[in-house]
Write a protein that binds this DNA or RNA. Structure first.
Lengths: 191, 191
DNA sequence: CGCGACGTTGATTTGCCTCAACGATTGTGG
DNA sequence: CCACAATCGTTGAGGCAAATCAACGTCGCG
C-alpha cells in the first residue's frame, strides 16, 4: 500500500491527476515481491512492464558475446527501471534486469499505460516529463563517458550517488563506470 | 514552407493531429536561416528553443575547462537539436550548438510548446514518444561507449550514419566518438 | 600569395586492461 | 556450529590501446 503512495508523490511533483485518473492508474499497478539475484527482465523476451522501485536496488545490464557485463542503469527507491528500448518498442529485450537486494516493485504493463495515457492526458504529460528528464540524464552521462578519466568518473558518481556506491557490488559499479573491477579497486585505494 | 511539411510528416509518423491542432502548432514555429559556424545556443544563456532541422547539419558540444570539445550530438535534416538539459529545465545552457553548414531550422519556444501540449494532448503524446525514443537512443550510445573499443565505435557509427561521416569535420566526429582526431585518422588509415 | 584551419604521420608516454595469485566474506550442507 | 566452497575484492607484473607532442602536407579563403 505504501508503495502506491510514494509513486503518487512522485507523480504529484510534476502533475496533478484528479481522483478518477488516480484510481485508474492504481488499477493498472501490480505490486511484486522480488528476491535478491532474481531477474525481472531477460534477453529475448519482450519487456512488457515498466517497474517502479518501492524498496530494494536493481541494475540493468548487457551481457556481451564475450561474456562481459555492462551495467546500463541502477535503480533504488523511487526510480523506474526496465529495458526501455524493449519496453518502448515492444521488441525483444537485450538486457537483464536483476535485483541486487530483496525488494518490492510496482509493475505496469505497456498496453495499460498507453491506454491510460490516451484516456487521461495528465499521465501522457507525466510520462513525457519523466522521459525528458531521463534523456537529459543520459546525455550528462554520455558527456562524462567521452570526456573524463576513470578516476574522474568514479569521483563524479560518488559525489552524485554516495548511497548507491555503498549499496551495490563493486564489480557492478565498475561495469557501470566503464572500467574493470581491478582498476576500480586501485582507484579506491589511492583515495 | 517545405520545412513545415517535413516536420508535419515526422509528426504523422506517430500521431494524427486534427486541422485545428496542426494550425496551432504551425503558429508557434519560426523558420530561421543560419550560416555556417553560427551558434544557435551558447553556454550561460537559457536555451528557450528546441530546433527542428529543415536543412543543414549541426552539432551540440561541451567545452571543458581545459579547452577540449566533446560533441554530444549531431543533427541533420529531420532531427531535433538543442541543449535539452537547458531546454527542459529552463536553466542556463552548458553547451554550444553550432551550424556546420549553412542551413534552415524551425524553432519552437519552450513555453509555447508547453501551452500547446496542454491544449492539444496529441502533441503531449508526440513529444513523449520523441523523448522516449531519444532516451532509448542515448542508452544504446552509452552501451557502446562503455563496452567497445575506439575502432568498434567508429565502425558502428559508420554503419549507422554513413552520410554524417562524410559531412562533418573529422575532429568533430572524433570528439563525438570519444577519441582524439589523431587516433581517428589512424583508424581510418588501416581500413 | 600566404595565412589559418584541418588532416596525417611518427615517436614516445601513459592510463587502463589482462592475467594470475592471494585474502576476506558469505552462505550452505553435513 | 563448523568446514568448505563459492563469490567478491585486492594486489602486483606485464602488455597494449589510445593519448600526447611535434612536425609536416594540403586545402580553402581573405
Amino acid at each position: 500500500m505504501s508503495g502506491y503512495y510514494s509513486l503518487l508523490q512522485n507523480i504529484e511533483r510534476y502533475v496533478a491527476p484528479g481522483a478518477e485518473a488516480r484510481e485508474a492508474f492504481f488499477s493498472i499497478l501490480r505490486e511484486v515481491v522480488v528476491k535478491k539475484r532474481q531477474f525481472i527482465v531477460q534477453p529475448g523476451f519482450v519487456c512488457i512492464h515498466q517497474s517502479y522501485v518501492v524498496q530494494g536496488s536493481f541494475r540493468a545490464f548487457f551481457l556481451s558475446d564475450q561474456g562481459v557485463e555492462h551495467t546500463l542503469q541502477f535503480a533504488v527507491e523511487d526510480w523506474f527501471i526496465s529495458d526501455f528500448n524493449s519496453y518502448i518498442n515492444q521488441t525483444p529485450a537485450s538486457l537483464f534486469v536483476e535485483a541486487l537486494e530483496n525488494g518490492r516493485i510496482l509493475q505496469m504493463a505497456h498496453d495499460d499505460v498507453e491506454a491510460l495515457c490516451s484516456r487521461y492526458p495528465v499521465f501522457e504529460r507525466y510520462f513525457r516529463i519523466v522521459a525528458q528528464k531521463s534523456f537529459a540524464f543520459a546525455q550528462r552521462r554520455i558527456l562524462s563517458n567521452i570526456g573524463k578519466s576513470a578516476e574522474q568518473r568514479y569521483l563524479e558518481f560518488y559525489e552524485l550517488y554516495p548511497d548507491i556506491v555503498g549499496r551495490v557490488p563493486q564489480y557492478a559499479l565498475a561495469s557501470y563506470l566503464g572500467m574493470t573491477p581491478e582498476f576500480l579497486s586501485k582507484i579506491r585505494k589511492r583515495l
